[in-house]
Amino acid sequence: MSQPEPPDTAPPLPDILIFSVPFHPSVGGMERFAEDLAFGLTELGYRIELATRTPAAADDNAPFPYPVTRVAGLVELARAMLRHPLVVFVGLTFYDVLLATMLRRRIVLTHHGPYSHYGEARRFTAGNIKRWMSRFYDNICVSRYLAGWLPGQPLVIHNGYRDDVFVPSCGPRPPGSFVFVGRLVTEKGVDLLLRSFARLRGMRPDVRLTVIGDGPQYAVLVALASALGCAGAVTFAGAQGPAVVATLLAQHACLVVPSIGYEPFGIVALEGLAAGCEVIVTRRGGLPEAVDGFGWVVEPAVDPLCETMLAVCAGESHRSEPGLSLFLADHQRNTVVRRYAEAIAAFVRQ
């Protein structure tokens, strides 16, 4: 006589509220992380609600496979928190974490920056308080570099990239074609890139640079390109969506990430590798982790960046197989989401 099948004793999947102050239609790394995490956990069968303080655009009807609650104050946020026993924070926002603590929610903090502004010299800051506060919760950092800012031993899970969007292309890539993708702000180092590019152009007049992004420095950088005498070889393409960025990356030989400030990880570097580019990053924050030996790592200065760009023009490469394919597979969106699901389950079991 056959024995009956044992009952399914697997614990139910946690019911989760993801709270991210920035979210669609705002554009940035944290917004993309929140969207990818919510989407991936929903695909795995979790019941997800996402709460944000970012208002919807008037003409935006973007569909999401999970409810998105746009809160204006603490009362609305408290109601959303009370609907879920577990709250995953995209970044530590002080009063919101205190609110979740008072409501006796289980809290997981994901960290996407050191809570310190580039160039800040004060010793007593809100960032210091946030870093001290993190010791009382479960923590996940997007890089080993970032984990070094926080007390204890936070779990490290690298960011992932959208492998359904950023794929290699067999199309032609002019050997002297360089591209930047990111916000046009001081810490992203676009002025450093322009100065290095202008010097490179003196040796290789055929080189070209495309700057994808927008921000407060847009006009300043356009003027700098003109002052450096390289405006005719630089295209400012403005801000673009992921699909257009992927298409443009596939048309360039090399992505440059010239950050001079704190860079928690650098998803754009992964995207460049996945799109088939050579990738040059500066030795800042988590950027070396984002290329892991498959890209070029340089000091953020004109001479080393120019020399490396010249080497790329000459056909030198740091891309190597099969290691690069394995590295990228390890950072695909679904792979990273599964790591988060495993980490959350482990925190809940504690």
Rank of each mutant, 00 (worst) to 15 (best):
G73T: 09
I48M: 06
Y95F: 12
E49S: 14
V68S: 07
R47L: 06
G73Q: 08
T69Q: 00
A56E: 13
Y46M: 06
A57Q: 10
P85H: 08
T93A: 08
G45T: 08
A62R: 13
L74R: 15
F89A: 00
P85Y: 08
R47A: 12
G91P: 03
E49P: 03
R70Q: 06
P55A: 09
A78M: 08
L74W: 14
P85W: 09
P67Q: 15
P67G: 14
L37V: 03
L92Y: 15
V68N: 01
V97L: 07
H84L: 08
A58D: 13
H84D: 05
A51I: 05
R53M: 10
T42W: 03
G45K: 09
M81Q: 09
P55I: 05
V88H: 06
V88P: 01
E76R: 14
A56T: 11
T42V: 12
L44K: 10
R70N: 10
L98G: 10
G40T: 04
G40F: 01
G40Q: 03
L77K: 05
V87T: 09
V68G: 03
A58L: 14
Y66E: 10
V75W: 15
V87L: 01
D59N: 13
L82I: 08
G91A: 01
L41P: 03
A57L: 11
V87I: 03
R70E: 05
V90I: 11
A57M: 11
L74C: 10
V75T: 12
F64S: 02
F39Q: 10
P63S: 13
A72S: 15
V90H: 10
G45E: 07
F64Q: 04
L50Y: 07
T42Q: 11
V90M: 07
V71A: 05
V87K: 01
E43G: 13
P67Y: 11
V88N: 06
F39V: 09
L86T: 14
G40C: 07
